[in-house]
Simulated scan of single mutants.
Amino acid sequence: MSPTDATADAASAPLPHVGTGTCPTPGEDGTARCADRSTEHEDTLDLRLPDELVALFETGQLGAGTDAQDGQGQQSRGESTAPPPSLTPAGDDLLDGVADWGPITTPAGVFQLVPVRVERDLPLVCRWMNDPAVAAFWELAGPQNVTEDHLRSQPAGDGRSVPCLGVLDGTPMSYWEIYRADLDPLARHYPARPHDTGIHVLIGAVADRGRGLGSTLLRSIADLALDKRPACARVVAEPDLRNIPSVTAFLSAGFRFSAEVDLPAKRAALMIRDRSLRDLL
């Protein structure tokens, strides 16, 4: 199951994504033609090459005869394919400095994303992962080494995913993963656009669930990502479709239900928060 399935606003809470695609219609010559759509926010495939790939062509790091592959970020639970080589030059910050995004003032208090330090934070995150309501969707229950392997795999990568503690008024109370959805295996399953930013989240304490806190923090972090990442036009999430409380939390946070997506380990709800609609939803 993808770690996108978190406990956001209820006892079991992953956050979903769902999108509406454009259905091709047959032309007179029998080939598929896309129906003309004028809706501004339709989830159609953006054919512009990612900036990272363009940069590699310009610098000659990706030349003739090289197979350009879709970039992958953090490996989704149930996805067994090893990630291909990164299309991003080493050392680039793919998420525009998550560690420097906050703190921010929210209706719930002062909130900040603090990148995980395994030596300091492993026991806390492992305890949350062993909560049955969380384990049902994250599938990281068990001894500490299970959670440790998951946490260490992200900082050891190329920066496509950053695991963080969510600290509210000085108290760690949630776990977040901010990732490049367009460079993640998820991009194989929906019409990704360059710089799409993904969110996985779980609310740690049972007392913090089911009272709107998840929605409040999701809205704040999604808007913060849009503020701090000018190239990003959308924040996305893909919770398990069965996790109704989590889907509801995303809807309350200004995300729209875009489509149902079949992922390797689950059927997910694709949730999208658009920059252009943030003042309306």
Rank of each mutant, 00 (worst) to 15 (best):
L251H: 05
G19F: 13
T66V: 15
R37D: 14
A64T: 12
S220I: 02
S86A: 13
D240Q: 02
L165N: 06
W138I: 09
I203V: 14
P245D: 05
C34K: 12
A90R: 14
P83W: 09
A187G: 04
S38M: 03
H195P: 01
P24N: 06
P26C: 07
L94C: 12
R160K: 12
S76D: 06
W101K: 10
D36M: 12
A265F: 00
R152V: 15
R211D: 02
V54C: 09
P84L: 12
L202A: 10
A268Y: 02
V134E: 11
Q69K: 12
G30H: 04
R256A: 06
L62G: 02
R37M: 06
A231M: 10
D96Q: 10
L270W: 09
R209D: 05
A135D: 15
N243F: 03
G166R: 10
L226R: 09
M1D: 05
A10F: 05
S258E: 15
P50W: 05
V235C: 08
P191K: 11
L241P: 00
N243I: 04
A136S: 15
G97S: 14
T7G: 10
E40F: 00
T31Y: 04
A268F: 04
R256T: 13
V98F: 04
L113P: 08
P264E: 11
L224W: 03
G210C: 10
L94G: 00
P245R: 04
L124K: 07
N130M: 15
S252L: 12
Q74E: 09
L122P: 10
D196C: 06
S38H: 11
T59K: 04
R117F: 00
L213Q: 04
G142Q: 04
L224Y: 00
P191G: 07
E148S: 14
T39M: 02
T31K: 11
A259E: 11
R37Q: 10
G159L: 10
V206M: 01
Y175H: 14
L113S: 12
S215D: 02
R120K: 08
A187L: 07
V110P: 01
A269D: 00
L95A: 05
D5I: 15
G198V: 09
L251Y: 04
L263A: 04
D196N: 14
P83R: 06
G30I: 08
P50Y: 05
G210Y: 02
P84D: 11
S12K: 02
M1C: 00
P107N: 11
L113C: 07
S161D: 12
C126K: 10
V110G: 01
D184V: 02
G91N: 10
S246I: 00
A82P: 08
A141P: 05
A141S: 15
A268S: 15
R193E: 14
A181H: 06
R120I: 06
N145I: 08
R267K: 13
D227C: 05
E238G: 02
F255E: 03
V116C: 05
P83T: 05
S153W: 06
R242L: 13
V134N: 14
N145G: 01
